[in-house]
Design a protein around this nucleic acid. Structure first.
Lengths: 332, 332
DNA sequence: TTGTAAGCGTTATCAA
DNA sequence: TTGATAACGCTTACAA
């Protein structure tokens, strides 16, 4: 015996399929009709088919969140926030992972035209013409958590990393650290570019020069460790006393290398991360980290997506979330 | 202008919808037919609707992976392994999160009957009659990464935590640590119960008595920190010299509390975690951890799921993956 | 090789 | 209030 359909329920209840559908959707019906249908539904264990339903009504009540790397704790913060908003609105959230390449991101956006979900929330690491084009042409609403040109004509929620960088530098300087190095992720990524510029500006604001900068091949722990030695030469050369990292994973990687080199955090070298993810509290010493508002970005991005699903004609909004600094033990 | 359908393509190409479908699916057609259809497809930017297609063919080519907590790094290991296998087989993987409650897990399994995916991979924290029943009655193939009664009649891939516990205790004893405490997660969970028993048996095998045991309210970092003080009383009382934790997050939580109490890891107290997740390498000191084979479990579970989709009549397999120990710096 | 048409499981329109 | 029926966009017999 195969899965029961609405027709089977109708037959079992001795009513029409239309009536079954009505009862199921809470439309007016007599007491008795409701009763009969519900009994048949329960008896057969009928569950409506979401594909057929969505084919008809044009909605799936699913939303997709695409993240570049499930291993990056910043995404779990964001995911939790998004989940909360969308499930409260009666949508299922499905998460999918794209990897760091823009081509996969484009393929994902294009693929949304297949009707998998009613909306898409992406946070792309790299952005190119193709991606902008695919977003603009996408059949379903897209919201970008990150920075994408205004001509993409899409709602965005982004962080203010320059301001965040300034917070980090202010803090270090206030604690007497001025020989500051910077470990960035790939500079050809959107966050990488923003943070590089932010760092440069923040140092300039304090009339400081970078003691060293390095670029990790990825925003990962392993890449952070691999790139750290480049920074450490500055330690012997000029007495580096602080390093700011483009995210928490990189910062934790650096702290490991610092320890391996016999340097203490924060006594010898202070370390500041960015994202203020769960990892920042879990690391040892707990990591001072720039909170770029990932939870709030997730929440607001989700709200924008829901709003656009309701009304696709609203003019795109570009929200910027302000950063704050979570001071922990990795800085003096 | 709305989204183009196969009928639109057919009209534009001046052929029948059947021919368009055939060309799109690579079925035999003349050179010219292929040419005309492809031109029309490109011109209109046509993308086939996955819902309609799957309604017809009865397959979605999507697989669902449900995890209890996206913040638990053991799931990222598993997710990566699953993703690799299923995408190689031409399926999309979508991840969804259930939370720790069994009712949500049941709702998820029941909901699969709605046709969201061709198969489901779950790793439930808690298992009850309802869940077993829902799995048995599920319309789509289910594979469980974890332990579920054989009567569920489902493929399972589980870890051997007793053996893993023994590995941990063996290691500690070999390094001269015999005053061992245990921090478990909730004992009413499947992994919690297995690890409690494993720990007890492992100690017995060494003629040892537990110096202290505690139960965290969750398998999380915060719960680990909160529960740690219970263990620390044993330190002052009898000179605790090692603690085994039911997962890496708990272990990291304990290490923080140990540090707060002025105890050094591993000199004063050795710590061993379980799962050997990315967090184990990232933590400081790097955590000695029992590798319960999460990557292999993910891989094999995905393979079982694909196999069952091919042939739903095969008899359910119950695979056990053997553990190993990843020795790092948190043990002497 | 190509076209016609029936259906996949729903919902929505229209009469009754 | 209820029932018959036409879509939704696709695939696939079956005919031509």
């Amino acid at each position: 015996m195969s899965r029961p359909t609405i027709a089977g329920v109708a037959r079992a209840a001795g009513v029409s399929v239309a009536s079954v559908s009505r009862v199921l959707n809470g439309l007016p019906a007599t007491e008795e009709m409701v009763e009969r249908v519900q009994r048949a539904v329960a008896e057969l264990g009928y569950v409506p088919d979401a594909r057929a339903r969505s084919l008809k009504v044009g909605r799936t009540f699913q939303l997709t969140l695409a993240v570049a790397d499930v291993g990056n704790p910043v995404y779990v913060t964001m995911m939790r926030a998004v989940e909360e908003v969308v499930s409260a609105a009666g949508y299922r959230l499905v998460v999918t992972t794209t990897g760091p390449d823009v081509v996969d991101e484009v393929a994902l956006v294009r693929g949304m035209a297949r009707g998998y979900a009613d909306g898409l929330l992406i946070s792309p690491l790299r952005v190119d013409e193709d991606l902008v084009k695919s977003i603009r042409e996408c059949e379903v609403p897209v919201v970008v958590a990150g920075n994408v040109p205004a001509k993409a004509g899409v709602d965005t929620v982004r962080a203010n990393s320059p301001k965040g960088m300034l917070l980090a530098v202010d803090h270090l300087v206030a604690r007497g650290r001025t020989k500051i190095a910077f470990l960035n992720g790939p500079a050809d990524t959107v966050p990488g570019a923003a943070r590089a510029k932010g760092f440069a500006d923040a140092l300039k604001a304090h009339d400081l020069e970078a003691v060293a900068t390095a670029e990790a091949s990825d925003f990962t722990f392993a890449a952070g460790r691999a790139a750290a030695p480049e920074l450490l030469v500055a330690e012997v050369a000029v007495g580096l006393d602080a390093v700011i990292c483009a995210n928490d994973l990189l910062a934790v990687g650096v702290m490991h290398e610092l320890a391996a080199a016999g340097l203490r955090v924060p006594e010898d070298v202070a370390v500041v991360g960015m994202d203020d993810s769960e990892l920042a509290e879990q690391s040892f010493p707990p990591l001072t980290s720039v909170n770029l508002g990932s939870a709030e970005r997730g929440r607001r991005a989700a709200e924008l997506l829901l709003a656009r699903i309701e009304d696709n004609d609203r003019t795109p909004r570009r929200i910027v979330v302000q950063p704050s600094l979570s001071i922990r033990k990795s800085t003096p």
